[in-house]
Amino acid sequence: MARFGMVIDTTRCVGCMDCVVACKTENDVPEGFCRDWITTEVKGEFPEVQMEIRSERCNHCDNPPCVYCCPTGASHVEEFGQTVQVTPEVCIGCKACLAACPYDARFINPKGYADKCTFCLHRVKEGLEPACVSVCPTQCMHFGDLDDPNSEVSRLIKSRDNHTLLPEAGTNPRIFFLT
């Protein structure tokens, strides 16, 4: 059974937000909200500065606190790719998952349910990449099966320096940032 994840090469990313726009049009994300976003981390003092630019989104954690805290099972681990998904018609909008997510990756859709990145499973099922990955002009994003040792994502994680976000949160996030 596949376990989907992403590898994002921060050395290529320019933070253009194409991923954000593509996600919004692909998924009809309502105005004022986003399922993915750009974080810029600047260290040092001018001119000795380092900067990391990251395209961030739900980490589809192996150990997802949003799923654990959901009182209705609306937030769940989908069998397909073991991704974290929300079923709008089961969600009561209690916002426990919003509070539980250390990445602040969720929001309440104006229709009332918890909303977030789906890894574009509707595209993946058709053999396409998630919208953000497929649109990226710098090709900094890779999507695939982390359980397959021969997948591009697995190979990149093995061969390049990388980090995840807030590993100390114990969520085992599945988005890896190459540095």
Binding site: V20, F33, T39, T40, E56
Partner: peptide, 13 residues
Amino acid sequence: MLELTTTRHNHLI
């Protein structure tokens, strides 16, 4: 010093 910026602007978050 860390300068952290995000483009996210989700209501409640």
